[in-house]
């Protein structure tokens, strides 16, 4: 028989605080490497200028502890909760929200959350959006993803007809990136969620953004091939860094997929701006 492992709610809150503070000021190494590679590939002078400023900004933000972008995002938190884990001294959701509140206050991060109708700012960037999964084991895996509004506004979920098939999916994704143009702060990372239900597809698309930039789908060769084909098509659009033209419109395309209903073909496209910020901790 397995005994539950105790983890304090305070420890969860402190970890969430640290993750959002770091995520907002330090760009992950894989994102930096992808941006450096893009700078070498880009042939358009203005596009190269934009990529150089993005890299310079990442250095300054890291050195000075300043946010990479003034849009420090809606706080999205992915939790993988081991089924043998027991949270003590408070409840998990409250602890996560408290960690977000402290990070945005202590780190001088922008409060970017408001009432949808009155547009009154909640003042502390809560509530965060939580995605939870119960998994085997006794650990808690926490991923913090501060998601900017500009790229989120260019994202979508569509219910295609099954007859659209893979060609239809690819045409749809390409069209979404074309329509978004300069708005989502390219070069973007394109997260694609195929299948599941109306609500599951965009969660898959968002999870796809967490994969190390440019790593092909690890288990499904069909998806890895689709990612490579889409990346090539997207980078032929000529949108370029910040939309000023060029070779590098996307740094990567990541696709995740689940089975869906026989009548359906949900396809979600979640665009991530070049400030692809996220951090993970395991407790």
């Amino acid at each position: 028989m397995t005994t539950a492992r105790d983890l304090s709610a305070r420890c969860v809150a402190e970890t969430v605080r640290e993750l959002f503070l770091t995520a907002n000021t330090v760009l992950p190494a894989d994102v930096l490497a992808a941006l450096e590679g893009a700078g070498e590939r880009e042939t358009n002078g203005l596009g190269r200028y934009v990529l150089e400023r993005i890299l310079e900004n990442a250095r300054v933000a890291h050195e000075e502890g300043m946010p990479l972008c003034q849009d420090t995002g809606l706080a999205v938190v992915f939790l993988e909760i081991g089924q043998d884990l027991h949270i003590v001294g408070g409840d998990l959701e409250t602890a996560v929200q408290e960690g977000v509140r402290q990070a945005y206050r202590d780190g001088f991060l922008r409060a970017s959350v408001c009432d949808p109708l009155t547009r009154h700012n909640t003042g502390d960037n809560t509530p965060a959006v939580l995605h939870t999964a119960i998994v085997p084991g006794d650990r808690l895996r926490i991923t913090a993803l501060p998601k900017g509004g500009g790229s989120e506004n260019m994202s979508s979920v569509a219910m295609l007809v099954p007859a659209a098939g893979e060609a239809g999916i690819r045409a749809h994704v390409l069209d979404r990136v074309r329509q978004a143009g300069p708005n989502p702060c390219p070069p973007v990372i394109v997260g694609v969620g195929i299948g599941g239900s109306l609500d599951q597809a965009p969660v898959l698309a968002k999870q796809a953004l967490l994969r190390p930039v440019g790593r092909p789908h690890p288990t499904d060769a069909r998806l890895a091939a689709m990612e490579a084909a889409l990346l090539e098509e997207i980078n032929r659009l000529g949108i370029g860094p910040q939309g000023y033209g060029g070779e590098v419109t996307a740094l990567a395309v990541h696709v995740e997929m689940r089975p869906c209903h026989i009548a359906c073909l949900p396809v979600a496209v979640n665009l991530q701006c070049h400030a692809a910020r996220h951090r993970t901790a395991i407790l």
Partner: peptide, 29 residues
Amino acid sequence: KGRRSEDVVRAIARHRAVYFGAIGGIAAL
């Protein structure tokens, strides 16, 4: 940052104004 509507592009010309693009996501700099 990003593009404007056709209405706005026309209004900018009509009023002899200008829309500048700045780089998004270099806010520390």
